[in-house]
């Protein structure tokens, strides 16, 4: 990895990657990553995400 890339990672600041979002604030890098998955993988990701959220909610409901 180049020194410039290293520096970018170390000093990354909010909004630095704004060019990767369109005018609506949509993160195109996230879309492209999700498109790299198969439909089955996308479904499993959504399901795992739901399970994680529900587990966190249930855990905190007891407090």
């Amino acid at each position: 990895m180049s020194a410039m890339a290293d520096q970018r990672l170390i000093t990354s600041e909010p909004g630095r990657d704004r060019q990767e979002a369109d005018s609506s604030g949509v993160d195109i890098t996230l879309i492209r990553w999700f498109l790299s998955l198969t439909p089955a993988q996308r479904l499993d990701y959504l399901q795992n995400h739901n399970d994680a959220i529900l587990a966190i909610r249930a855990r905190n409901a007891r407090h």
């Binding site: 879309i31 999700f34 996308r42």
Partner: peptide, 12 residues
């Protein structure tokens, strides 16, 4: 879920 299967990174 239809949108997710098409590749849209949204939640439902």
């Amino acid at each position: 879920v239809g949108a997710v299967l098409h590749g849209a990174p949204i939640h439902t």
